[in-house]
């Protein structure tokens, strides 16, 4: 390694003084930078600069998204029923026989309604995948249902070409009693169209070969290993095709809108 020249003590002292000042200034600047991040105005409950970071990650990983990147699949024997985590949108009673799925276009006009048999008429697909929660846990489970891409084809002719997101929510007019008060029970999420059209994104009605039970999203839920659980809406009541991103329950509460895997 090339030896550095010796320098005099005087030069050394000068150097260390300069380094100390520079280092101190850097530390102070860093501290101010840190406080600046903390005290930022917030977008959806995250300091703006961090929200921007989430958006940067989103655009980066969106551009890297490939339809042939398949999430890992497992043997059916490895699958078990998912643990329950949160009941938002599922606290109210549901009349499974009276259930209908409403489909809307970008401007909010109703395009169609479906009963479960309509979905069951589409080609059936099953997958055993690892379900991942944004909290960190993961569990292998098995879903059966129709590909969302097959479902969307039913509406091909009625939709503009620039559909970019799909908004999903639990049925309207769900209420439950919370401390004696009638409270709306509502969960909703939006997902980018690339993920929705991936062949591992299902409108699922079967879990481990049986109809999905109520707390896991009966009668119809979204199942995709390409997103965290927060995006895999249970008890779908309405689907709306959008040309821009839509509401998202946890995205509005400080989480990453994209939440892709």
């Amino acid at each position: 390694m090339p030896e550095k020249p010796e320098i005099s003590v005087e030069a050394y002292r000068k150097r260390s003084r300069r380094s100390l000042l520079a280092g101190g200034a850097a530390a102070v600047a860093g501290l101010f930078g840190w406080r600046w991040v903390q005290n930022q105005p917030e977008t959806d409950n995250i300091p703006n600069v961090l929200r921007k970071g989430h958006e940067f990650n989103e655009s980066l990983w969106k551009s890297l998204f490939r339809h042939d990147h398949q999430a890992r699949t497992f043997d059916r024997e490895a699958a078990s029923i998912l643990r329950l985590n949160g009941r938002i949108g599922l606290r109210s009673e549901i009349d499974l026989d009276g259930w209908q799925l409403t489909v809307k276009g970008p401007d909010g006009t109703e395009l169609g309604r479906h009963v479960l048999d309509d979905i069951k008429r589409l080609p059936y697909h099953e997958m055993t995948v690892e379900h991942k929660c944004i909290e960190g846990w993961a569990q292998i489970t098995n879903w059966g249902g129709a590909r969302f891409s097959d479902f969307m084809r039913l509406y091909e002719d009625q939709l503009p070409d620039d559909i970019s997101h799909v908004y999903m929510q639990t049925p309207d007019d769900q209420y439950y009693l919370r401390n004696g008060n009638r409270t709306r029970d509502h969960y909703y999420t939006s997902c980018d169209i690339e993920t929705m059209l991936h062949n591992q994104t299902l409108l699922a009605y079967n879990n481990l070969g049986e109809p999905i039970d109520e707390l896991h999203g009966a009668p119809l839920r979204l199942a995709t290993p390409l997103k965290y659980g927060i995006k895999q809406l249970k008890r779908i009541g309405e689907i709306q095709f959008l040309t821009e991103t839509g509401g998202d329950y946890w995205g509005e509460r400080g989480y990453d809108w994209y939440a892709g895997l």
């Binding site: 985590n85 009941r87 379900h131 929660c133 839920r221 927060i230 249970k234 509460r253």
Partner: peptide, 10 residues
């Protein structure tokens, strides 16, 4: 509520 306990709804 920044409430991860109820984070994942699925």
């Amino acid at each position: 509520p920044d409430n991860p306990q109820e984070t994942a709804d699925a």
